[in-house]
């Protein structure tokens, strides 16, 4: 009987916090942050690139290697400064070796013309549910003064059954850690938008929806462009 009397206290103290593993590995990448369609002849353009590691967090590479497929049309220095020399088209690339020894590369096709034309100031995408909770609708991310505007179209709809549904911008679909938390969802149907200061148009790859208190992924939406 004595052993039995010890059973309850033992159970009471056994309620210890354990570990949940989050499988948060993503493909590391180098990304050109400010792509451009056309550079005016005889002018320069400063390209910028970032390195995103295997959990989608911005990190440092020891060096970036910039290259032009047609140096006679666009020449580029190793700090990313490009010079448009004559009319034509060149493939501008940036590459680097990540700490794991993996070669990473991003490239953009750039035209040399009579005037500079920036790439689209808008990115678009569609939400998809990755759970059994409702999430759908189209969205866009538009460059505005000082940041970006994330807009959801009239066909947007999200579940009202969750406490603490939050929306994020992220480079990692598996976790909200290191994601940009936009805020708690307050509109569950119809068009609405968020102004986000200090955010670059190409900084993130996805819109992400999580039930924050219980770490339940509800869905996401990749940018199509």
């Amino acid at each position: 009987m004595t052993k039995l009397y010890w059973t309850l206290p033992l159970l009471m103290v056994s309620a210890c916090i354990g570990d949940d593993l989050v499988y948060d590995e993503v493909e590391p990448e180098v990304r050109i942050m400010n792509p451009i369609d056309t550079i005016e002849i005889n002018t320069t353009y400063q390209f910028e690139a970032v390195y995103l590691n295997n959990v989608g967090v911005e990190g440092d590479l020891s060096s970036y290697l910039w290259a032009s497929s047609a140096q006679e049309i666009i020449s580029i220095e190793q700090n990313g400064l490009a010079t448009a020399l004559k009319a034509g088209t060149a493939l501008i690339s940036v590459s680097g070796l990540d700490p794991g020894g993996k070669q990473l590369r991003d490239e953009k096709l750039v035209v040399v013309g009579n005037s500079t034309v920036v790439s689209s100031n808008m990115r678009t995408g569609s939400l998809r549910t990755t759970s059994s909770y409702l999430l759908k609708g189209d969205f866009s991310l538009e460059k505005i003064s000082g940041g970006v505007k994330l807009s959801f179209n009239a066909n947007y709809e999200a579940s009202t059954a969750l406490p603490g549904l939050y929306v994020y911008l992220t480079n990692n679909l598996n976790t909200i850690d290191n994601a940009l938390e936009i805020g708690a969802v307050k509109v569950f149907k119809g068009a609405h938008s968020y102004d986000l200061n200090g955010v670059d148009l190409n900084q993130y790859s996805h819109v992400l929806y999580f039930c924050k208190p219980f770490r339940v992924k509800v869905g996401d939406g990749p940018f199509a462009n």
Binding site: G18, D19, D20, V22, Y23, D24, E25, V55, T175, R215
Partner: peptide, 10 residues
């Protein structure tokens, strides 16, 4: 209680 969330990568 809630468990810790631990990155399986890092």
């Amino acid at each position: 209680y809630f468990n810790n969330q631990v990155s399986a990568t890092t």
